[in-house]
Design a protein around this nucleic acid. Sequence first.
DNA 1: GACTCCCCAAATGTATACATGAAGGCGAGT
DNA 2: ACTCGCCTTCATGTATACATTTGGGGAGTC
Lengths: 232, 232
Amino acid sequence: MTKQTRSQSVTDQLRELVLQGTFNPGERLYEIALAERMGVSRTPVRDALNTLKIEGLLDYETQRGYGVREFGTHDIVAAYEARAALEGLACRLAAENGLTKDDLAILERCVSDGDSLLSSGKLLPENLNLYRQMNVDFHETILRASGARILADLVRQTHNIPFASNRIMVWDDYQIIHRSHDDHHRIFEAIAHQQSKRAEALMQEHVFFAGQVLKKHIEAKARIAEEPGERG
Amino acid sequence: MTKQTRSQSVTDQLRELVLQGTFNPGERLYEIALAERMGVSRTPVRDALNTLKIEGLLDYETQRGYGVREFGTHDIVAAYEARAALEGLACRLAAENGLTKDDLAILERCVSDGDSLLSSGKLLPENLNLYRQMNVDFHETILRASGARILADLVRQTHNIPFASNRIMVWDDYQIIHRSHDDHHRIFEAIAHQQSKRAEALMQEHVFFAGQVLKKHIEAKARIAEEPGERG
DNA sequence: GACTCCCCAAATGTATACATGAAGGCGAGT
DNA sequence: ACTCGCCTTCATGTATACATTTGGGGAGTC
């Protein structure tokens, strides 16, 4: 990891805090309080707040400061739908342009690495990070291969929603992970054979499905959390 | 227009300068020089540079400052394709949810205003701003009606590319404008009748077509600009 | 007792001083 | 004369002092 400035470091820390739900929705964030908490001056904190505002994680009003933006299931689903459309598009462009040998090799490696990690019939907890990294690599390689940096930028935006990050997945169902990795197989095949339309459709479904899984997961969790109160 | 801070004002000015091509691609932007030029201190300038970096207009390297990002025809086309996908999605969601009476009324108004402006068989120069505003209203209303703020955010991003703004259009061909407004008619109809799939397809084509027109326009201009040099 | 107006406190906006790092030129040594 | 390394210079990164605005609380009046 290359050296980074305090502004960048604070931005990353604060983004992580917000994405992890450390703050309550709507909670106001004070520059001075954050600066003291992080052990820096207001300057890097202001940079970070400004950045997260543009990324869409914070609300802002002139002379009134920043607040944590509220996100509902609806927003998460919309983010996944947007991501599905964008990554589908990137996938099609990549297939149309044709990949470099290097990029093709990376994708092939991702697919075979995934096969290994899943070969035992389950995903071992110690392999979770490896699988996650493989998944990120797969998607980022395709975005890069699309040749359109703006698509990568837009997709990055769609990750900036609590629960919607590509690093957060539903891991408790081997069947779902297996099916997801099966999608990777077919996407790779479609790209390699320049079946651009098929590649687009597969990627759209791949991402959309992940969104649906996450949605059900969140709703189930919310139901459980509410039950004790509903009994009274 | 509500009062805004210097940071916001400088950001808007600088964004406009970059979008209008005031700086050469790759040109470096110095904080101090900009601050003097704009008559403010480095603080608002730094805010602005940070903002435009995240919006994707500037490149940045730690301890090395900011530079104007280069955009090619390829980027512009990709931006339009992304916008087509996103606005198509928003249009479908809006049609599925159903619009409020107010939003429906706004769209209807946009359509009939456009009819008036084009009724003479051409678009008069003094009506150009009115038409442009109508067009912006139409698209923004649909984005709002989609109920997904993230879509509006993402679409805004796609405007942050030189030549790709929704405020820049190719105005010299009445036929094209007329066809574009005809799309609005049909999109309105599809939304009003909750024909969500049709609404999505129409909007996708509507935006994609605008991108194609712009692409040809840019290429034609580039050809003309190069000719004198090619003769030598 | 409630309402209004004014003043103060606190938070954000802006400027500037200071710190750090990077790049290029100049001088010394070979 | 050429190369290596240091040193100067300048631009960015960070902290802090100062300015402005907002909102609330207290005092005074009806």
